[in-house]
C-alpha cells in the first residue's frame, strides 16, 4: 500500500526545473533514503509532501488524499533548520506540540529528553547546538505519526551526535510507520535504510531495495550512487 504516491510531479522555479516528472510509490513500514547531492530536488520534494510548496504540475497523494490539513496530522516533519522559537522554554515548546498535534506523546518526549540530559525548564537558546538538534528530533519522534520525514538529520552534526541520532531513529522505528530520510551523506546512513531513492537534478534515477542492490552489484550504496551519477555525466 503506497503511503506516498506522486504522479508526474513537476516544480518549476522560473527557468529552473527543480522536479522533473517525479513518479514515486513509497510503501508503508519502510525506512526509505532519499539520496542525492545538494540541489538535486530533495528539499523541494519534501516541501511539496508537507504542503508548504505547491507543485507546478502533476499530483501527489499522502495516504490516498491530497496534501492538506489531514495529511499534516499524519506527517511528522523535521526540517533542515532551526524551526523553534529559541526564546521559549523547552517545556513551553513541548506544550505547543501537545496543543496542536493530536498524536503527540508527552511522556515519551520527556523521557527522551531526560535520556539526553536536557533540562526542560530552561530556554532553548541556552542549549548547545548539538542539544538543540536533539531536542528538535525528540519532539518530532514523540509524535505517533504514520510518516516521519527527516530532512538532512545528520548533516553538520558531530560524530557523537550522529551516532546518537541514528540510534534514536532505530529505537523509535515501528513497522506501522514510514520513515523518509533525505541526505547527501549516503555512507553514514545507508545501513539503516530498507529502500533507496536516487535523485539528481530533479529526476528519480533509481528506487530499489538496499540489500538487493548490494547483492546485485557487490558495492556499497554510496559507491553505486557515485557510479550512477558518473554514468549520467558521461551521457
Amino acid at each position: 500500500m503506497a503511503i506516498i504516491e506522486t504522479e508526474n510531479l513537476c516544480k518549476q522555479y522560473g527557468k529552473t526545473q527543480a522536479l522533473h516528472f517525479v513518479n514515486l510509490k513509497i510503501n508503508e513500514g519502510k525506512i526509505v533514503g532519499l539520496l542525492g547531492p545538494n540541489g538535486s530536488g530533495k528539499t523541494t520534494l519534501i516541501k511539496i509532501i508537507n504542503n508548504i510548496l505547491q507543485p507546478t504540475s502533476g499530483s501527489i497523494l499522502i495516504d490516498g488524499i491530497e496534501p492538506g490539513i489531514k495529511s499534516k496530522e499524519i506527517i511528522s516533519y523535521l526540517p533542515d533548520c532551526n524551526f523553534l522559537n529559541e526564546e521559549m522554554k523547552i517545556s513551553s515548546i513541548i506544550n505547543y506540540f501537545k496543543d496542536f498535534f493530536k498524536n503527540f506523546d508527552l511522556n515519551k518526549c520527556y523521557y527522551l529528553l531526560s535520556q539526553m540530559n536536557v533540562r526542560t525548564d530552561v530556554k532553548l537558546k541556552t542549549l548547545s547546538k548539538g542539544n538543540k538538534e536533539r531536542v528538535q528530533l525528540a519532539l518530532i519522534l514523540s509524535r505517533d505519526a504514520k510518516i516521519y520525514v527527516l530532512d538532512e538529520p545528520i548533516a553538520g552534526v558531530d560524530p557523537i551526535n550522529r551516532d546518537f541520532i541514528l540510534k534514536l531513529i532505530i529505537e523509535n522505528y515501528n513497522p506501522d510507520s514510514t520513515l523518509l530520510i533525505s541526505t547527501h551523506l549516503i555512507q553514514d546512513i545507508e545501513s539503516i535504510l530498507d529502500e533507496v531513492i536516487f535523485i539528481n537534478e530533479g529526476s528519480i534515477i533509481l528506487h530499489e531495495d538496499a540489500e538487493k542492490l548490494r547483492s546485485e552489484k557487490n558495492m556499497s550504496i554510496n559507491d553505486i550512487f557515485k557510479e550512477e551519477l558518473q554514468c549520467l555525466v558521461n551521457l
Binding site: I52, I69, Y77, P79, C81, F83, N85, F100, F101
Partner: peptide, 18 residues
C-alpha cells in the same frame, strides 16, 4: 514575520490548522 514567514514557519505552516 518571524513565526509565519521565516524559519519558524516550517513548524507554524505544518500544524494541522487552516
Amino acid at each position: 514575520y518571524r513565526n509565519v514567514l521565516c524559519q519558524e514557519g516550517y513548524l507554524t505552516n505544518t500544524i494541522p490548522i487552516k
